[in-house]
Design a protein around this nucleic acid. Structure first.
Lengths: 199, 199
DNA sequence: CGGAAAAAAGCACGGGCGTTTAGAAAGAGC
DNA sequence: GCTCTTTCTAAACGCCCGTGCTTTTTTCCG
């Protein structure tokens, strides 16, 4: 009973890496099994279908994301510092994943946007939660007086997320060295505009 | 000699639609042939391999994009109006493609970012050209005095592109009704910041 | 209209896919 | 240490993939 759960976890860990590179659809059970030195059917037995494997990958990735990005940011003081930390943690998350394919959610987003099903549903929920998290941090910044009263926190969250997508695009596809600089500068401008009376 | 070129074109047209939905990798020759009521081998004969089919799809899509997005924008007056037009034309392009999977370049970007090869190379070139185009429009706006002198036009182009990616994400994955409003509002803010002395 | 050339179809291949089933190896608890 | 259960393997399935080869159909031109 313990051994099973252990390999199950190990499979998911490796699957997240592989899926980041080749996508959730591109990931093949045979290929994943080979990487783990496991038989195809042995691996398959852990998940009843490829779809549920995909869903479990997304769930495991969400848990990892929460721990690596959100939790550290929550240790920062309420308000702008925490807003900043969320952005920085995400950049770190993406950069750490560079060798293995970048943020899996970004990859999955365009892959699943036309593919109805449980995997898509799960991804949508994760993305909504993430945007809510960003918006909530901004809301707190308003409450703390770090941002001015009429900042539209949902718009702010959307803009912030767009910058993250832009970074992914520039860094991963175009291999643009200035990507990080650009992302930070844009985010600074976003913060500046949100603060009371300009800077 | 003429008939061949005709079907070749028809194949690419439909392939762009299909690839927008299922991706360049997900697109299968058999599936495409069936949609066109053509034999698999008959279709295959037009392209010597799947890779070159993918490259031709990207090239055809680039031509379409140039005609539908860039050319109309170039009819607008130099400076801010043209910058605006590029943004608006892209939104139109994306919205027109909604029923068939959204902008193929956005889909291909995350799909190919870890897949070295001719298709990726072609896509990178297209994206660089697009960013250059955005930057050049901004440069003209600076020259015309619509934007202030020390606007970093490459940063501007990057930010604008990030907003477009954000729109795609919100509209296609999250089906967010406010996506378009958000995108326009962000872009307005971008323009406002670029104009001499605030508004 | 007839014959050369081009285009499309038909068929078969080797291989990988997701999935199923039956059985071997390994682990757990008494 | 034996037994029962869990975990893993081996082999096979039907299916679709990209890709060649051969043949038939269509198109073009003198």
């Amino acid at each position: 009973m313990r051994k099973g759960e252990l390999t199950h976890q190990a499979i998911l860990e490796r699957a997240i890496q592989l899926a980041s590179r080749v996508g959730l659809q591109g990931l093949s059970i045979g290929g994943l099994a080979e990487e783990l030195q496991l038989s195809k059917s042995g691996l398959f037995a852990h998940f009843r279908s490829k779809t549920s494997l995909q869903v479990e990958i997304l769930e495991a990735a969400t848990a990892l994301f929460t721990e690596r990005v959100i939790r550290p940011a929550l240790t920062q003081p309420r308000g702008e510092p925490r807003v900043r930390a969320l952005f920085e943690q995400w950049l770190t998350w993406e950069k750490e994943l560079v060798p293995e394919g970048g943020c899996i959610f970004v990859a999955a987003a365009t892959e699943l946007d036309d593919a109805p099903g449980p995997a898509r549903d799960r991804l949508v929920q994760t993305q909504r939660d993430w945007l809510d998290c960003l918006a909530q941090a901004a809301r707190i910044a308003v409450a703390e007086g770090h941002f001015h009263k009429d900042v539209d926190v949902e718009q702010f969250a959307h803009d912030e997320n767009a910058l993250l997508l832009g970074f992914h695009h520039s860094a991963r596809l175009l291999k643009e060295p200035r990507a990080e600089t650009w992302a930070r500068r844009s985010f600074d401008a976003l913060l500046r505009a949100a603060r009371p009376q300009g800077s």
